[in-house]
């Protein structure tokens, strides 16, 4: 029996050579156990060395290989050819980002947003290195899900707000800020309030919930943002009603 094939319709764009983007079709051997990334690697190895994309761990944890697959943001190492076969698979770079080349997006904006939410433990005291801070299993559970983000950017591609407003901090970074706010070891709530409570912070979210839908790690950024809105409102009331008191 001849080898069955599947067609990948791949977005191509090289900034120096191409005036505009095009699609290029590749026929790839069809294997039931192959993920879409395997097919893309097969193209690169055997047919066309010019195709550029990012990948590494191929086990859904490094967050490198997010792309639009038939219009939906996916980790290409975690979706299988068999889920699409025998139909054509359209492969495009993640939307809501500038394209550097082919399937490679420009992450600069996200890296700045990530830093802006101060995603680190903030405390006044100095570290005492002789013992861990105590944290009970339920205190851990309060933020654990929000700490599972692999920065794969699928939620930024799914977010309808980012489609219109690139300044919106976005689901992953806001969920991470909330993760630190919820951590019993952290005292940085107030320092994060300016950015969280700003227009481009949690209030920018229209609560469509697409981010949570597409998240491959069940982080639930939409839930984090809703919780953060409530916390932000409480902080605002405290500052208005009790301006002399300690927040």
């Amino acid at each position: 029996m001849p080898q069955e094939t599947i067609t990948l319709e791949v977005f191509r764009y090289r900034p120096e050579e191409d005036k505009q983007s095009t699609f290029q079709n590749y026929d790839v051997p069809y294997h039931e156990h192959w993920v879409v990334l395997d097919a893309i690697n097969w193209i690169k190895d055997n047919v066309d060395g010019t195709l550029s994309y990012r990948w590494s761990c191929r086990m859904g944890v490094c967050g490198s290989c997010g792309m639009m697959i038939n219009g939906e943001p996916k980790l290409t190492c975690a979706v299988f050819l068999k889920d699409y076969f025998p139909k054509v698979i359209r492969v495009e770079p993640l939307v809501n980002f500038p394209v550097e080349r082919d399937l490679v997006i420009d992450m600069d904006g996200f890296m700045e947003k990530l830093k802006s939410v101060k995603p680190w433990i903030i405390r006044d005291d100095t570290d005492q290195m002789d013992q861990e801070y105590l944290q009970t299993p339920s205190q851990l559970a309060a933020y654990k899900d929000f700490s599972m983000c692999i920065n794969c950017m699928l939620c930024y591609s799914a977010c309808p707000v980012l489609d219109g407003d690139p300044e919106f901090i976005g689901p992953a970074a806001l969920a991470l800020a909330h993760r630190y706010n919820l951590d019993s070891r952290d005292k940085g709530n107030e320092q994060r309030q300016d950015i969280m409570g700003a227009e481009e912070g949690v209030w920018g979210c229209a609560f469509v919930g697409e981010c949570t839908e597409v998240c491959p790690k069940n982080v639930n950024p939409a839930g984090a943002i809703q919780q953060a809105k409530i916390a932000s409102t409480k902080a605002w009331y405290r500052s208005v009603l009790l301006p002399w008191g300690k927040r």
Partner: peptide, 12 residues
């Protein structure tokens, strides 16, 4: 201290 979410015993 930097925030790594280590698993915990009931006593923290």
């Amino acid at each position: 201290h930097w925030g790594c979410p280590w698993n915990r015993e009931p006593d923290g």
